[in-house]
Each structure stands twice: as C-alpha cells, then as structure tokens.
Design a protein around this nucleic acid. Sequence first.
DNA 1: TTGAAAGCGCTAACAA
DNA 2: TTGTTAGCGCTTTCAA
Lengths: 370, 370
Amino acid sequence: MGTRKEIAERAGVSVSVVSRALNNSGYVSAEKREKILKIARELDYHPNPVAMSLMSRRTRQILFMCKDLRNAFNIELYEGMIEAAHRQNYMIVLSGDMDLSRLPSLLVDGVIFPNEAVSLSYLEGVGKRYFLPAVTAAYGAQTSFPRAIPRVTCDMWKASSQMADYLHSLGHRKIACICPYGMDNGDPRVRVWVDLAAQSLKKDRDRYYIGVSRQCLPDDRRVLQFQEEQENVGLLSFPPEHYFEKGCLAADIFVERKLDATAVFCFNDEMAMGFCKRIRQLGLRVPGDISVAGTDGTYSQRYFDAELTTMNLNAVLQGRRCVEVLLNVIEGRKFKYVTNVPVALKKGETVRAVGRAGSGNARPKNGRGV
Amino acid sequence: MGTRKEIAERAGVSVSVVSRALNNSGYVSAEKREKILKIARELDYHPNPVAMSLMSRRTRQILFMCKDLRNAFNIELYEGMIEAAHRQNYMIVLSGDMDLSRLPSLLVDGVIFPNEAVSLSYLEGVGKRYFLPAVTAAYGAQTSFPRAIPRVTCDMWKASSQMADYLHSLGHRKIACICPYGMDNGDPRVRVWVDLAAQSLKKDRDRYYIGVSRQCLPDDRRVLQFQEEQENVGLLSFPPEHYFEKGCLAADIFVERKLDATAVFCFNDEMAMGFCKRIRQLGLRVPGDISVAGTDGTYSQRYFDAELTTMNLNAVLQGRRCVEVLLNVIEGRKFKYVTNVPVALKKGETVRAVGRAGSGNARPKNGRGV
DNA sequence: TTGAAAGCGCTAACAA
DNA sequence: TTGTTAGCGCTTTCAA
C-alpha cells in the first residue's frame, strides 16, 4: 500500500518531513512539500489506520452491544447512534453476538449496552476486571443502578401511566398484560399494570398476566420453541428475543384462558402486532372484540394494516443521546449521569372505547378487523 | 490497562519472556511462567488489540457496506455474515453511511458490497487507487462484471422465471410490474417480466410497468418524497431505498391508471407488502381482485396478515457465502469467482388462479382480504 | 528547516 | 532458557 518511509526514500527526505508535509504540521519547505504530496498521490498512499490508532490511542469505533436486529427498536436505536457518531467522526459497530467476554479484544473506544440487564451482567463479569467507557440505554427497571455506567433512560413510567390513563378513560377495566418476563421483573410497564389490576382484577389478577416465559409457564411446552427458554443457553449469551412470535403465542393463551379482558397492554410493538395477527386468526376482531395497546412506536408499524395505538419511545433519539454521552466520557468532557428521553402517547386504531362511554362496536377507519 | 512491559518489570524478566509465557510459545521456565501469569491476572492484563492488529496486519473485521437496515433483506444478509464470520473469528461491522471514500481509513480487512451497482461505483472511484479485498452480493443485473470483485449471486433468473411460469399456469395474462427503477436497469426480474409482457400486453406494455422513480415518473411530484429522487443527493451516497413506501405509491398509481391486470409482480417483498396495504385501503382485495407476487422471502413477512406468495432468495445463505469467499481472499486461499445461491418459489395466499382455470373467487385460508 | 531518536504495545530472529 | 535487537507505521521532541 505504501508507507511514509517509502515516500521519504523517493523524495530523498526523512520520514519526519513526510509526516509534517502530510499532516500539515510543523515546518517544511514549500518545494519539498509539493514533491512529497506528488509522490504520495502517485503511490496512492493512504495512512495505515491501525498505526494511526496505535498512536492516537483511539479507534474511533463504538460498539453497540446488540444482537436481535429483527427488532425494529434496536434498528432505530442504531440509526440514532450512527447519526450522532458520524458527526464526531466515529463509527458504530455491532457485536453480532453477545459475548461480553470478548469485549477487551475489540477495536473499540467504548460500548453501549441495550438495557440495564445486559449492563449489570457486564459489570458483574468482565467489567469487574476491565475498564472501557460504557453507557446504557435504560428503561427504568432498576431502582438502584451502579454509577459506573451512565444511563440514557426513556421515561417508561410516564409513557405507561399515560397509556393506563388513556385505556381507563375509554372505559377499559379488565386489561390483560402481555410480557416476555415474569411479573417481578421490575419493569415500569408491568408495575403500572399491576397497579391498575390491583383495583379492577383483584385476586384474579394473575390469570390476566400472560408472561411468555418458561418461568411463568413451566408446563407449557410451546415456550420451549424460543431458544432463550431452553436449558443450554449460557448466562453470558443474550439470544434473540422472538417478541413477535411470543405475541402470537400470547394470543393463543389469551383465548385458552377465556379471558374477558376488553384490552391488552403489550410489552412492545412486536408483541402487540404478533398478538393482533394471531388473535384475528382465532376469530377475534381488533379493536372490535379486543383493544390492543403497544409500546415502542417504531417503523415496523408500517407493515401493519391498522394504525397501532402505542407509545412513541423515541428510539432514534435515545440512540443519539447514548452516543453523545459516551463520546463525552471518552473524550473526557463532562457529562450527565442520567439523561431522559421524552415519550408520547400515540393514539391509533387498535384501541376503542367500551362500556357506558358507548362508542360501541366502532370499527377502525379502514373497516378492517377480520 | 497494563502492558507486557509492566508485567516484565514486576516479574523481573524481559518483555520477550512475558510474551512467550502469555502466548504459550517458545521456551520459558515453568517457574517464571507461573509468576508471569499470576501478575498478569493481578493487573487484569488484556493485550492491546490495536497493537496486536499492527503486528498481525489483521483487524479481523469485515465491513458490510450497507445503509438501509429497515429492509429485512439486508438484515438477513447481515445475520448470515455474522454467523460465517464468527466461525473464523472475524467481526462484521456496518458502515452506517455509504461514503466509499472513507473506506481506506477504516479498521477492516475487507469489504462486502450489497449489490453490483455499489461495487461498480466503488471500482470507478476509490477502488481505482486503493486495494482492499472485496466481494459483492449480486443479482444477475450485469452482463459483464469486472473480475476484480468476486460475486455471490442469487439465481434471480431462475426465481423470476419460476414465478412467471407459476402466474401463467394460474391463468394470469395481464401482469403489472412494480419496480423502483426504470425498465432498462437490466434486472432479471424486469427482463423476465418484459418477456412475459411482450406476448400478453403488446404495445400496452409500458402502462403496466410502474417504475417508482423520478426517471419513470418525471411529472409525479409524489416520488420526490423519497430522498434518493431529490436533486441534492450526491453520487457517492446511497440513501435508504424506501421500498415499502414506494410499494404504497405504486398501488395509488395502479388504481389511477385503471389497470385491468390480474396480478402484480413486485421487485421485492417490501414493495409487495406496501402495495398490498395500500391497495386494500383503496378497496381492492388481495388476492380476490388482484394477485400479488413478491421477491425476497424475508422475515418481515411475519407482520403481514396473509402468507405472501414470493421467492425465497436465501439472504442468510447469501450473506454467509459472501463472508466465506471474502475470507478466502483475505487469507490467501483459493476461491471461486462466482458463487450461486439457490432460490425457491414459495406459494402463499396472495396469488390465486383466474380465468378458465376457474378457481374463481377463492379466498385465502383465513378469510382475510378486506 | 531538517532528521535522528525515542516511543506507542507487541512479535520474532538471533545471540548469549 | 533468556535477553537483546530490530521492526510493524506513525508521531513528536529536540538537537543540529
């Protein structure tokens, strides 16, 4: 490829002069500069990026620790990261797997974790014996969180509460909850739902919580189809989440349990759409028979035939902020330990009013609903 | 972080001994080895990845030159790449932008291009004055292609022909074509359709070709919503493709032109699904009023309420093969200049029989269709 | 204005 | 079995 040394030889000068000429730093006679630049051009010279990194102690690469790219939320996070990184001349790289132990051997200046759980897992593992600037996307699941990793948190509490109020205002009382975890996960979405359920569902509550996980459904062999629920998955590996498919399964369970809920509160849009697809196949109309509320507000909605009622979590913005904070850490600038990302309720067509309110069997605008 | 030099000082030996101990290479007394390993552990020593790369002249990173991650096809390609790369201890990084000129400054050992067009653009630009092992995913659009870049080609000819035969066998004669480019693009999908149309549509052909691009629709201001059709997009930048949205627009145009086609042949699944969504909103049933055939066979189908009739192009496999060939190039092993990826027709619910065949108004299994 | 020298963290050939 | 030396491609200090 050609090195500065080669250029120096051809130009009959020393490498330092070549360096100065190429970098436009320090003194170098106009005549030699021209000659050097000309030779560099002839040789198609490009500085060796690895040597540059060794000198500058910067790779200008940031790792986004993310595996499940079939989830639109992760893609949007990533898009925001790219945008912010690009502005400061950094690149985002993806891990492809979730092997945290390989982190120290990667050519990166910092890492962004996708959620609190992964961050904690890192801190308890390699993070203990290895320092790398890190930032995590967060969702308010943890009450206490180590200060080692700054958080960029989306205001899930607010979003969930708004959605709860909205559903309540439309007359919904019996609301089911669909989630990939157990009820004790600490997730704000679940806690808000638990509060709701305490009033309306009383001791019946647990039947209305459809936790699509092995822990919640120990006897249901169907959850075993999801890799992460199988025995042989190591603790250090975070497999793809299969949210959509879990949403489908949740619909089956919803029908099997003969729930009389008028609405379903979903962990995210993928699950919401999976639920809708399957529940329609099972003969129920959305929102005619059952209202569905999602969480996310990502582009994957475009595939859906109705406007999804959901919460816009601003994934792109969250991704952007993650990078901004991380670059502050890396470059030694001051930064805020917690950053909040604004959220907003998005009213769509998959939730309708019920009960006294009496909007009755209103159908969505385009008349769909199986 | 600690270096081999520090370990050497603490252990009272030279760096070479430390290196040999840590690498398990060459001679080193058992006693010193133990001591060195112990100190390394105490110091939480990790080899500096950049220095390692400088020595080995390998970054063990491969760039996938891809921007539009909202397209499931790219995601599947990427997943295949990750899998293959992982096996040989490489990582795939994404560019995030399509700035080919920045390639020489990236920490990568090779690059994978997403299609022939980008490859050619590279060869005519920086590729002329810079060498980096490269491979391209290909789709048979080019008759001649420079040997500088090996291709991993999916057999689009075969796939398109199969689909054409299938539609024909079901009685479809008037078939429209939906494509993001002009008819002269050389794409096998289009060429197969042109052959079909020559017989059945005769001189009416052009009306049935819905090319959603500025070139094809110079007077339609709606195409301007897509960034890539605007004036100010530089040649070196490949913006996101907006296939889904273009599929929606194609449906509008289909209706405006009052086409009497019984089937639509779509450039890819994104366009097919966009077309379906919009055409239903416009009051037509799929496949009741119009049959829709896609191309891709990616996971994004899961969002769709019916089984899409499409061609499985095996994106995951294609991605895997790209990496395998590229690693052969990088590691100096022998490799094949052209690799073919198998394809298969996938019969779904969005195409039905028409005409004499008389399966009449058969509706899809789940009774959907607006 | 220039170039020799030391160094970034690591490897490897060679002499001791 | 060990340490010295030279070098990967580049930067930067400092003496000339």
